[in-house]
Amino acid sequence: MKKSIGDNMIPKGWSFEQGLELVKKAGYDGIELWLGDVPWFQMSTTDSEIRELRRKVERAGLVVSNVSTGLHWETPVSSRDPKVRDRAIGIVERQIEAAQILGTDAILVVVGLVTAEVPYNEVYQRSVEAMQKLGPTAGNAGVKIGCENCNSEQRFLLSPREFWTFLNDVNSPHVGLHLDVGNIHDTGFAEQWIEIHGPRITRIHVKDVNKQRGRCGDQSVYTNLFLGDNNWPAIRAALDKVGYNGWLVAEMELRYRYALDQQFYDTAAAMDRLISGKL
């Protein structure tokens, strides 16, 4: 397995180049690029500018592990407004194009958003239709769409079997699961998600979670690896069992208050322990 971390973790005020240097120095193999979340990679970023990002990544001795985005929280494919849905599809298409240019084969999509306003049945069907539409586009580009399990925040596809049914309904070999082992909270167990989805997993986000805390105000449920309630030996065993040998991508919500670069080193060391299996 290989280690990666998101460019949205690069401390504010740092340049992309400075961030890449830190990521390499901390021991990562690659970097996850977040469309729309960082100044150097926006929807307005041109193809040639994306090619330049790739050159910078490669000059730093890294590769791009995958292309993610948080834009679908604001512009979901499950919106009631057709204009918003069109924009959401456009974001995924741009992710696919960018992935091709950046030389990676996976993107992350937050596929639907259940709210008090937009109920589950609507979100489900629109999400299936959107992924059915995008699957062939991804396939033609040699890219896989990984739908992320943002269980609590999306209030959508809350169990691994539900997610399995969703992927069956989409019915595309180019659409799978971008698993976040920290997002499952107390609605289940990451190791069971890994076992059930196995080869459908495109990438894995790693972070730990305090299952008993719950969101309240600005308090986060997420924490650094091995500090929370995830059963990491079971997760590691499940990865072995399904033969997952792909990217582990660090996604830490809680940031260090001081010595911001230290989190990169600490997280990389924890990921090494996870990969080694010495837990």
């Binding site: 929280w73 604001e74 958003l113 709210t115 008090a116 306003e117 719950g214």
Partner: peptide
């Protein structure tokens, strides 16, 4: 403010929906 936009805000702020 309880629609999609506020869902984003809740996500960002970590507020209970």
């Amino acid at each position: 403010g309880r629609g999609e936009e506020s869902a984003l805000a809740r996500h960002a702020e970590g507020r209970r929906a």
